[in-house]
Design a protein around this nucleic acid. Structure first.
Length: 430
RNA sequence: CUCCCGUUCGUCUAGCUCGGUCCAGGACACAGGGUUUUCAUCCCUGCAACAGGGGUUCAAAUCCCCUACGGGAGGCCA
C-alpha cells in the first residue's frame, strides 16, 4: 500500500484555469499511478472572491475532467476540514509553536517569521537540486489577524500528511520560504516537483484567464470531449516517450512518473487539441456519441418535436463520420430536420458554371418520383442510369442535388442523405 | 535591479542519465499528390530544429563555462 498523499489546492476564483487543471491532473495522475491519495483542499483565506458559485465552477470542472478526489469537500476524509477558512484553530496552534521558539516578531500589527538565512536546498523531482536563500523575514499573519498563503500552505501540507508537492514552477522561488517554515516546525520536507508553466499561444507570458481558450468551462460549453482535453493536457510537459500521443487514461496512469516531466514551459496549441478531439470523436460508439450530442441538439432547437428517434440516430451516424467537433453539429445537420437551410452561394455558382444543373435536377426529380424505395442501392442505380442515358458523368447529377438538399457542396454523402430525407421537396430552393 | 528556472522543426515532443547507432525521430499545423463519383476519413511526399560562442574529447544535441533570449519569483495576493 502506497503512502503517497498529494493535493491540489486551488483558491476558488470563479473560473477554472487550464493551467490549474493541468496541475490538478498531474497530481491526480501521480496519485493514481502510485495508488496514493489525491486530496482537494480549498484555499479560501481570501474571502472576497470565495463564493458558492466559484466553488461549484471548480468542482464541476474537476468532475468534468474526471479528476475525482479521495479526500476533500463533498467526500470528507480524516484530515479535514478541507477549507482553509475552517482551519483557523490549527493555524493559531502552529503560530504558537513558532512563537514559543522565538521565530516570530510583530511589526505594524503583522506577525513576521524570522528566517535563518541559510541556503535552502530543494531536491526537486523535476528540476534536480535547486539552491536558494531566503534572506528576508516575511509576514505570516496579517494585521487583520488572517494568516497568509505561505504559512497556511505549509501548515496544511504538514497536517494533511502531504508527501509530494506537485505544483507550478511559479512556486519554485517561494519554496525556500516553505522549507524555512518546515524546518522551523522540525518536520521532514515533502518531495517537491515543480512542473512547467503553460504559456499563451501568442505573445509573451504565461496563460492568463483573459486569454482565449484558457478556461476549462469554455471547453465544456463548446462540447469538447473531456477525455480528449484531458489527454491533450497530459501531453503538455509529459509524454510516454514512445511517439504515441493519443492513449487511454489507464495507460497514461501506468506510465506517468515525476521523472518523466519536462522542465521547459509549453505553449498551448488549440489546433492540436482539436485534432485529438476529432480522434476521440471518431472512436466514440454511436450510442455514446448520440448521448453527447443530445444537449447541443436540444439547445439549438433544430429537431422538431415529433421527430422519429430512429431517424435522428441515422442522421447522427452520418454526422459522426463527418464533423470535427460536436460544436459544429447543428451547422451541419440542420437540413436533415428543416427545409429552412440556406444555400451556399459560392457553391451554387460553382455548380452553375458548367452544364445545365437545373435540367439535371428536373430529370433526377422525375426519376425519384417514380421510386417507392429510397435505398442507397436504388438511388445509386437511378443516378447511374440517368447519367448513362444522357451521356454525362454522374457527378453532374450528384453535385447539384447535394447543394439542393443540403445547401452546401461539402460534407454529406448524397445517397445517404437523400435516403434519409425521403421524398422531400428538396429542389424547391432553385 | 536581485534571485531562481529554462532553451531540439512555427507548436507539442523523442534523443541528453550511461558522448559515437542522430547530416536528429514522431505528432499537430502548413504545402503538394493519391484514394473516395463530392465532402470527411485514409494514404503518400515535402517543408522545417540541436539559441550563439568557447572549451573537454579521437568523437558532443548529449559533459563544462560564458553570452543572448524566454519564463518565474521578489506582496499584510494565492
Amino acid at each position: 500500500m502506497s503512502h503517497v498523499r498529494v493535493r491540489f489546492a486551488p483558491s476558488p476564483t470563479g473560473f477554472f484555469h487550464i493551467g490549474s487543471a493541468r496541475t490538478a491532473l498531474f497530481n491526480w495522475l501521480y496519485a493514481r499511478h502510485t495508488k496514493g491519495i489525491f486530496i482537494l483542499r480549498i484555499e479560501d483565506t481570501d474571502k472576497e472572491r470565495n463564493t458558492e458559485d466559484a466553488k461549484q465552477i471548480l468542482f464541476q470542472g474537476m468532475k468534468w475532467l474526471g479528476l475525482y478526489w479521495d479526500e476533500g469537500p463533498e467526500v470528507g476524509g480524516d484530515y479535514g476540514p478541507y477549507y482553509q477558512s475552517e482551519r483557523t484553530d490549527i493555524y493559531r496552534c502552529y503560530l504558537e509553536q513558532l512563537q514559543k521558539i522565538d521565530r516570530t516578531y510583530e511589526k505594524d500589527g503583522a506577525i513576521y517569521f524570522k528566517v535563518t538565512g541559510e541556503p535552502q536546498i530543494i531536491e526537486d523531482a523535476v528540476r534536480g537540486r535547486v539552491e536558494r536563500t531566503e534572506d528576508k523575514d516575511f509576514v505570516i499573519f496579517r494585521s487583520n489577524g488572517l494568516p497568509v498563503f505561505h504559512f497556511v500552505n505549509v501548515v496544511d501540507d504538514i497536517t494533511m500528511g502531504i508527501t509530494h508537492v506537485i505544483r507550478g514552477e511559479d512556486h519554485l522561488s517561494n519554496t525556500s520560504k516553505h522549507t524555512e517554515l518546515m524546518k522551523a516546525f522540525k518536520v521532514e520536507l515533502p518531495q517537491y516537483a515543480h512542473i512547467p508553466l503553460l504559456l499563451k499561444q501568442q505573445g509573451p507570458g504565461k496563460m492568463s484567464k483573459r486569454d482565449r481558450g484558457s478556461l476549462i468551462e469554455e471547453y465544456e460549453q463548446r462540447h469538447f470531449l473531456a477525455d480528449a482535453v484531458r489527454n491533450y493536457l497530459c501531453l503538455l510537459g509529459w509524454s510516454p516517450k514512445d511517439d504515441r500521443e493519443i492513449l487511454p487514461i489507464e495507460e497514461i496512469i501506468q506510465l506517468f512518473d515525476l521523472k518523466g516531466i519536462n522542465k521547459n514551459n509549453a505553449k498551448f496549441d488549440e489546433k492540436k487539441l482539436a485534432f485529438i478531439n476529432t480522434d476521440y470523436l471518431r472512436n466514440l460508439s454511436l450510442e455514446k456519441f448520440h448521448m453527447l450530442c443530445q444537449p447541443i441538439l436540444n439547445e439549438s432547437k433544430i429537431i422538431p418535436e415529433d421527430v422519429n428517434e430512429i431517424f435522428v440516430h441515422d442522421v447522427l451516424k452520418i454526422c459522426r463520420e463527418k464533423i470535427r467537433s460536436i460544436e459544429e453539429l447543428p451547422k451541419y445537420c440542420t437540413y436533415f430536420f428543416s427545409e429552412k437551410y440556406s444555400i451556399n452561394e459560392k457553391a451554387k455558382q460553382k455548380i452553375f458554371k458548367k452544364g445545365d444543373p437545373l435540367a439535371r435536377l428536373n430529370e433526377i426529380l422525375s426519376s425519384l418520383e417514380t421510386l417507392n424505395s429510397f435505398s442507397e442501392e436504388t438511388l445509386e442505380k437511378t443516378v447511374a442510369s440517368l447519367a448513362m442515358t444522357h451521356n454525362v458523368s454522374s457527378g453532374e447529377y450528384i453535385h447539384p442535388t447535394r447543394i439542393a438538399v443540403s445547401g452546401n457542396q461539402y460534407w454529406t454523402w448524397l445517397l445517404c442523405n437523400a435516403s434519409s430525407i425521403r421524398k422531400r421537396k428538396c429542389f424547391v430552393p432553385y
